[in-house]
């Protein structure tokens, strides 16, 4: 692992992030396997993964940039574009749709004044739809950043949004 070139690129893992990565090296027989975890750390620390951030990860792991770009764009949880502070992800797969996910989408669009795929002007909320999140028995549901919110109703959504400052 290399820690050079950091200033030039603008992005750099924190000491703690670098330490986490180094410790994980012991977990795998090949350092290539660190790519997914490293992208998570980068996303945590840099907010999203733009070209510069991906180049930095490629340099640190000594991987071809093409590979890092390919992986980062393959998985939906890596964000190559900035999102608002709260990423609101509504499941619209079958079980949630049966119980009104559609309505939840419309309600949130109205409440936040944006369409799916957009971010509020104050950068607080980004609204997207996602596929099944494994909460089908408590549908409809959404995930905001890492937290699941289940059995959604309009009232419940109001309460949740109030709490997300």
């Amino acid at each position: 692992m290399e820690e050079t070139n950091i200033e030039k690129k603008g992005y750099a893992f924190s000491k703690e992030g670098m330490q986490r990565l180094k410790e994980m090296m012991k977990d795998y027989p090949s350092s290539d396997a660190l790519l997914l975890p490293a992208l998570y750390i980068a996303q945590e620390e840099f907010g999203h993964l733009d070209t510069e951030a991906l180049r930095y990860v490629a340099d640190v792991l000594k991987l071809p940039r093409s590979k890092v770009f390919g992986v980062a764009t393959y998985y939906t949880m890596y964000k190559t574009k900035p999102t608002g502070k709260h990423l609101v992800q509504i499941c619209t797969n079958l079980s949630c749709s049966l119980l009104g996910a559609d309505h939840i989408v419309k309600y949130l669009e109205n409440r936040l004044g944006i369409k799916v795929g957009e971010t509020t002007p104050d950068n607080r909320f980004t609204l997207i739809t996602v596929e099944c999140l494994g909460s089908c028995g408590t549908a409809p549901m959404m995930q905001v950043n890492d937290t699941y919110y289940e059995n959604l109703t309009e009232k419940e959504i109001d309460r949740i949004l109030e709490g997300l400052k």
Partner: peptide, 10 residues
Amino acid sequence: EGEPGTYKDR
């Protein structure tokens, strides 16, 4: 656990 409808392992 990605098969839509499935939440048994959780």
